[in-house]
Computed example of a mutant assay.
Amino acid sequence: MSAATEAFLAMLAAERGAALNTLAAYRRDLGGAEEAIGDLAAVERDAVAGLAQEWASLAPASVARKASALRQFFGFAMDEGWRGDDPSGALPAPRSRRPLPKLLGHDQIAALFARAEDDAMGNEPRAVRQLALIELLYGSGLRATELVALPLSAVPRDAPFLTITGKGGATRLVPVGARALEAVGRWMAVRPALPASRFLFPSKGGAHLSRIRLYQLIKALAARAGLDPAQVSPHVLRHAFATHLLEGGADLRVLQTLLGHADISTTQIYTHVDAARLVALVNSRHPLATRATSD
Rank of each mutant, 00 (worst) to 15 (best):
A25R: 08
L200C: 09
G75Y: 08
R277Q: 14
L245Q: 11
A230Y: 04
P125G: 01
G139Y: 09
A207K: 09
D119T: 00
A110L: 05
I218S: 07
F161W: 15
Q108D: 15
A49P: 04
N21L: 14
S210N: 10
E80Y: 02
A52W: 01
R115V: 03
H239Y: 10
R126H: 13
G177T: 07
S265G: 11
Q72V: 03
L245F: 09
W55E: 06
P60A: 10
Y215A: 13
Q268Y: 03
R179E: 14
L147Q: 12
A180P: 11
E44I: 01
R213E: 15
A61E: 13
W55Q: 02
L112N: 06
P195N: 06
Y138P: 11
P151E: 12
I264T: 05
S88Q: 07
P92G: 13
S233Y: 01
A170K: 15
P94V: 03
P160R: 03
H244K: 03
E35A: 04
A114C: 08
A189V: 02
S68L: 13
W55P: 07
P99K: 05
L136D: 04
P151Y: 08
R95L: 09
A120Q: 04
G249H: 11
A289L: 12
G177V: 07
A13P: 03
V236W: 05
L137P: 08
A154V: 02
A90C: 06
Y138C: 07
E35N: 04
D263F: 02
